[in-house]
Design a binder for these strands. Sequence first.
DNA 1: CCGTAAATGTCGTCG
DNA 2: CGACGACGTTTACGG
Lengths: 226, 226
Amino acid sequence: MRIVVARCTVDYTGRLSAHLPSAPRLIVAKADGSVAVHADDRAYKPLNWMSPPCSLAIEQNPDDSDLVTWRVTNRAGEVLTIVLEEVFHDSEHQLGTDPGLVKDGVEAHLQVLLAAQPTALEPGLTLVRREHPTAIGPVDLLCRDVAGQAVAVEIKRRGEIDGVEQLTRYLELLNRDPHLTPVRGLFAAQEIKPQARILASDRGIECVVVDYDALRGTDDPESRLF
Amino acid sequence: MRIVVARCTVDYTGRLSAHLPSAPRLIVAKADGSVAVHADDRAYKPLNWMSPPCSLAIEQNPDDSDLVTWRVTNRAGEVLTIVLEEVFHDSEHQLGTDPGLVKDGVEAHLQVLLAAQPTALEPGLTLVRREHPTAIGPVDLLCRDVAGQAVAVEIKRRGEIDGVEQLTRYLELLNRDPHLTPVRGLFAAQEIKPQARILASDRGIECVVVDYDALRGTDDPESRLF
DNA sequence: CCGTAAATGTCGTCG
DNA sequence: CGACGACGTTTACGG
């Protein structure tokens, strides 16, 4: 990883055109060839960048030895050009491959918990299959309700419109199966946005807000992911 | 901006829980109090971070002077804890506020151009309203065709499936209005993906590929965004 | 390589 | 401040 702090100008041409006037910035070139240009605010988002896979070419300006140009290109024809005008810091570091991070609290875990206790979604609900396959992808949970009717469950951490659309597509396919139809839709999330709720209601899909911590508290520790 | 390269462990507790085992990484603390921890790959995304507004507290471990702990917290109660085990580099830089970047080619500009010349979409098309409101959000353009029929236009830079879904939802709502129904759908983009085209066709929505440069060339310079 | 779904998405805008 | 949609979304995962 190469770390440079320099006054520079930056130009990006690709999905759009963007230009950064001359100013001091942090430039990070990583081992995978990627480059990011950061200002002194916003932790997450670089001002400009090139994602891997891409390649970096460094050119010395023949007319002016003070000017060095970094040209980063990718297969899609996007180009990021950085002209270094004044370098305040320049160092190289060997970091090695990162062991990666361990997460908890994601959708996968919610799915495991709800698969173990489908009655948390609705009294009498029983699990038929987790990740039930369809032509366009797996449904999170396929269940049967107390009356024996099939119920397709889509699980999200945060329930938004996208999730309702996704469940709608699954329902359309599942209802073509004579063994299953008519299939009810159930949209489960820790939090459901008003617009998603309206759309779901309009499509005849029920919404259930689930409490992650409560589910965790009542489940069998053996079945936990972590 | 403070730049540290160090062997460290990182823990995040907030929207989820995450842990990074000990390894060498880049840590950037910015003027707004935000902190990002980067591995030697992926230009854009940090391994861990805390977005502003947040505050950084640096504590010297009383038992072991080699261990320094950074604790970053925000109003929402999220906590990022970084324990520095071995520091390879540590420097501070004054960057000042960035002049910011200049963009071009975004969807907003396309919408302005097409609102000014709806005939670029279809001969005889006239604009009724830009950002026409519906219960689930505004339709980019509401027009009337040469026969007087209402036409809802959804504009994207790149036309993909979710854009077609969006337009479908608008059409469903607009068609409930007796003053408008039957409403035609028109999906306009600089580039339309095959899957989006198929879905649009299935829904009876027409697709129009628009040439941004050509539109720009023929429009009135007064109406430009930039 | 393309298509889809997830994300601690982040970021602007508008109510 | 919250909801909503755009973003050069990025990133991971399957076929």
